[in-house]
Amino acid sequence: MITEILRYTAFTSDPSGGNPAGVVLDAARLGEDDMLAIAAEVGYSETAFVTEGDAAARRFRLRFFSPLAEVAFCGHATVATAVALAERTGPGELVFDTPVGEIRVATETDGQGVGRATLTSAPTRSRPAEDAVVDAALAALGWARADLDPALPPHVAHGGNDHLVLAAASRARLAALDYDFDGLGDLMLAHGWTTVQLVWREDAGRFHARDPFPVGGVVEDPATGAAAAAFGGYLRAIGEAGEAGEATTIRIRQGEDMGRPSELLVGIDPADARVRVTGQAVPLAA
């Protein structure tokens, strides 16, 4: 069985940046073991598989696999797949049926010919994280309570997957990431977190993020669309999503500390539980 595996990097227009994803546009004949084996061979944090599709209706069924397991939702692989499909079928809206429900993605091409996609997330929600859980995460990270920004309290945020959100008090604390891979991974598995989203607020509209992903067999993700969506819901829940009652867009810079800079635009509407995450994607050489 010959399967074409495409490679894209998402949330960047530069092949040396962003978060690489595998994309298989014709996975109808593949079983779960096949998809997991391909994801492990590709070696990226996630590979997306189109298992069914109606090109005329622009509707497709999408599954995501890390090198270790299936993942319910992956933002950067969704953006990569949407751009890959748009390059073949033309820009416009796509609908993906995923394990977390229907995800709509608007695609376009910018003035330089680079594909761009805006996904509308599953409904987001956020709740305060328990003190004991936060303490366990801080221990695995090698952080102290004093390293946290008191204005952005620890939460478990959901945008398709659960993510523990911890805000660093300084950019230096965020940059110095050296954590207990197995210890944090075990804690994440116990609580069902896909990533731990570590953020630092530069100003009201710009954040920096790092996302450890040991449960997927990856030390860190250079861009995490699902966590960005969850973070948008978190900001809305704690009342930090711009002026009262008005929609706002924030920028998340990620991947800089690992040499793969990425930028994610996150659109937050106080009246809508869904969050919009926008990014570019470009193909990579095989």
Rank of each mutant, 00 (worst) to 15 (best):
L189S: 01
P15C: 12
A106F: 10
L164S: 12
D272G: 00
A168N: 02
M35W: 03
H158L: 08
A106R: 15
D178E: 14
R260C: 08
L235S: 05
A55P: 12
Q254A: 07
Q197V: 11
P15W: 11
F207S: 04
A168I: 05
L25C: 07
G90T: 06
I2S: 14
I103G: 05
H191E: 08
I5D: 02
I38W: 01
A84Q: 06
L187R: 07
T248Q: 13
R260T: 06
T248Y: 01
E102V: 15
A37T: 13
V165D: 09
L189R: 14
F181Q: 03
G239M: 04
A80E: 10
E263S: 13
V23E: 10
A167V: 08
G92K: 10
T9S: 07
I103C: 04
G279E: 10
G239D: 08
E256P: 00
R173Y: 00
R201V: 01
V218E: 02
V105T: 11
G22L: 05
P283M: 14
W200H: 15
V42D: 11
P91L: 01
A190M: 07
D186E: 13
Y8G: 00
A28Y: 12
I268L: 06
D33G: 09
P99F: 08
C74W: 08
A230C: 04
L141S: 14
A137N: 11
G192C: 00
R63G: 03
A151Q: 13
A106K: 14
T195E: 13
E243A: 14
F11K: 09
A230L: 06
E41I: 11
D131C: 11
V42F: 07
D182H: 13
T118L: 06
G267N: 05
T98W: 03
G217L: 02
A48C: 07
T120R: 15
S262H: 00
A247M: 00
R116F: 04
A139L: 14
P154Q: 06
D149V: 11
W200D: 03
A157P: 05
